[in-house]
Amino acid sequence: MPINEPVHVDARGMKCPWPALRAARAMRSADAVTMEADDPIAPGELEALARQQGWAFEVRGPHLFAFVRPG
């Protein structure tokens, strides 16, 4: 996988906190992650995780999110 290619995590159907836990796990070994999550609580949980870790966070669609490690 190219270095610039983000890891994709499909967390659709998972209730929080599972999407946030999956995002944190993926970011252990990646500099960028895209995630699909459809739990209505997920956007706030994912944004809070990114803020706590110092990652950039972007909402790319109704159920699509992105995390990027600064640097």
Rank of each mutant, 00 (worst) to 15 (best):
P40G: 11
W55C: 00
A37L: 08
G61N: 08
M35F: 11
R60M: 15
Q53E: 15
R22G: 04
V68D: 00
E5A: 08
M1H: 13
A11G: 05
G71H: 01
R60G: 14
I3P: 06
E36C: 11
R12A: 04
A42F: 11
P40S: 13
F57D: 00
C16P: 10
V68R: 04
L21P: 01
P43D: 02
A50Q: 03
F65H: 07
R69W: 00
R12C: 10
L64P: 01
V59S: 11
D38C: 12
G54Q: 05
L49A: 08
A20M: 05
T34D: 12
G71Y: 00
P40F: 14
W55T: 00
A26C: 07
F57K: 02
A11D: 02
L64I: 06
K15M: 14
E58F: 09
R28I: 03
G13H: 04
P2S: 15
I41G: 05
W18C: 02
G44W: 12
R60A: 15
M27L: 12
W55K: 01
I41F: 11
R22E: 15
C16T: 10
L46G: 09
Q52D: 13
A11N: 06
R28V: 05
P6I: 03
E45Y: 12
P62F: 11
Q52T: 12
N4C: 02
A50D: 06
L49F: 03
